[in-house]
């Protein structure tokens, strides 16, 4: 056994495969010590044979195992060594992945659509080129009335058409074709004939909401809008309703949300005016509903801290690639 320990030590001190091969040959090669001893075992007496043969066999096995072990050790450390030679500087930048960017207004619209869809609202759309009837008359905004002055309008040449000034006409178009209960949102592009500055542009996006049933109330509106704003801006927003005026609702109110700079005007809303129900072909005695309109550009600007609405329509990739 002393013999075995000495050989193992020798094997494990081999520093490469070639040296290991030499050691193997020294014991188990054609002229190796152990090989020779095994071959000459026939020369021994029966008694000596019985004692010596198993010892040599086991020694041979032990050597073979030890050489194999050492050889795999040497091989793997050699591979490791080779891999180390393939060193990369991992702090150098990665290859640029070329994914495109969705416009911030698209992202806001998708988010808003998702929230209202989860609340059971259907998404409907209407034309951007509208008639005077849908944009004004049907919404209880009479001709030659000062209330019409709130909406500065782009008119088409020689046509009875205009660019819609709000998404509210979609309310009428939808009610004409559907019976309550109604639960819709109508997002879309709208236009105003006004001088543009950092917070006003000649076009922007609005989202109209309408819910009509037997007994919709202001209290119901508060619950829905609170849920929407909470989901959009994070938990537990603080809101307040204050009186306002839009010809197509009565009562009408403005919804403010509490933010870092105090109360911020978020949207206009109210209970659908009986004249609007009439224009859409409903009997106002039978139905109650609320409607609201939110400016999506303003929401995008608040969420992304954009300070000029015109950036949204500039097509400037230095801006768009940030989204």
């Amino acid at each position: 056994m002393e013999e075995l320990d000495k050989i193992k030590k020798e094997i494990n001190s081999a520093s490469d495969l070639k040296e290991l091969d030499g050691i193997y040959k020294k014991y188990l090669g054609k002229k190796g010590e152990v090989a020779l001893a095994l071959r000459s075992i026939g020369d021994l007496s029966e008694r000596e044979k019985k004692e010596r043969a198993p010892q040599l066999q086991s020694l041979k096995k032990e050597i073979e195992e030890e050489v194999l072990k050492r050889s795999s050790e040497l091989k793997s450390s050699g591979a490791e060594e080779a891999l180390r030679g393939e060193w990369l500087d991992v702090t150098a930048p990665g290859k640029k992945a070329e994914l495109g960017h969705l416009h911030p207004l698209t992202q806001i619209q998708q988010k808003v659509n998702e929230i209202f869809s989860s609340l059971g609202f259907e998404i409907v759309e209407g034309p951007e080129l509208e008639t005077e009837w849908y944009n004004f008359d049907a919404l209880n905004i009479p001709k030659d009335h000062p209330s019409r002055d709130i909406w500065d309008t782009f008119w088409m040449q020689d046509k009875e058409l205009l660019l819609r000034t709000h998404t509210s006409p979609v309310q009428i178009r939808h009610m004409e074709k559907h019976q309550p209960p109604i639960r819709i949102i109508a997002p879309g592009r709208v236009f105003r004939h006004e001088a543009s500055d950092a917070s006003h542009d000649i076009q922007f996006y609005q989202l109209e909401g309408l819910m009509v049933d037997k007994d919709m109330s202001v209290a119901n509106f508060k619950a829905v809008i609170n849920e929407f704003l909470s989901q959009l801006f994070g938990e537990n927003v603080k809101i307040r309703l204050r009186p306002s005026f839009f010809p197509f609702v009565e009562p009408g109110f403005e919804v403010d949300m509490y933010g870092p700079k105090g109360w911020m005007e978020m949207l206009g809303a109210g209970m659908v005016h009986p004249n609007v129900f009439k224009a859409a072909g409903y009997n106002p005695v039978n139905w109650q509903g609320f409607a609201f309109g939110i400016g999506l550009d303003r929401i995008a600007m608040m969420k992304y801290k954009i300070d000029d609405i015109r950036l949204l329509y500039s097509g400037d990739l230095r801006f768009l690639k940030q989204f």
Partner: peptide, 14 residues
Amino acid sequence: LSGFGFSEVYNYSM
């Protein structure tokens, strides 16, 4: 389209 690496723009309707 954004998967193809295109970025989205919004232009004026006029």
